[in-house]
């Protein structure tokens, strides 16, 4: 039962990692990396490390996404300034 969860989530993590590598749209890649941290946190819980899982939950779900988004926003603004 527990092993099933680990294998399914591991395969999904691999698929999300390929998405983050190959997608042309950067925003979709950011969303895929959010999905990776989501499933990594469940696997940490199964491996009996709740402290690590909580760190992954707090950082991966909110803060990393927001930092990436701000960086993407800065890049977009710079490109638009160049076009004007």
């Amino acid at each position: 039962m527990i092993l099933t969860i680990i294998i399914v989530l591991g395969i999904l993590m691999l698929a999300a990692a390929f998405m983050a590598l190959y997608l042309k749209d950067l925003l979709s890649a950011i969303i895929a990396s959010g999905a990776i941290s989501l499933m990594a946190s469940v696997i940490y819980i199964i491996l009996a490390a709740p402290d690590v899982a909580m760190t992954e939950a707090a950082i991966g779900s909110g803060l990393t996404t927001i930092v990436f988004l701000y960086a993407l926003h800065l890049v977009r603004k710079k490109q638009e300034d160049k076009h004007d």
Binding site: L27, A57, A58, S61, G62, I66
Partner: peptide, 16 residues
């Protein structure tokens, strides 16, 4: 851990 997810994860969606 589930409580942290329930309270924090929506901020990422709002940011997107």
């Amino acid at each position: 851990v589930a409580m942290v997810y329930a309270l924090i994860s929506f901020i990422g969606v709002v940011a997107i």
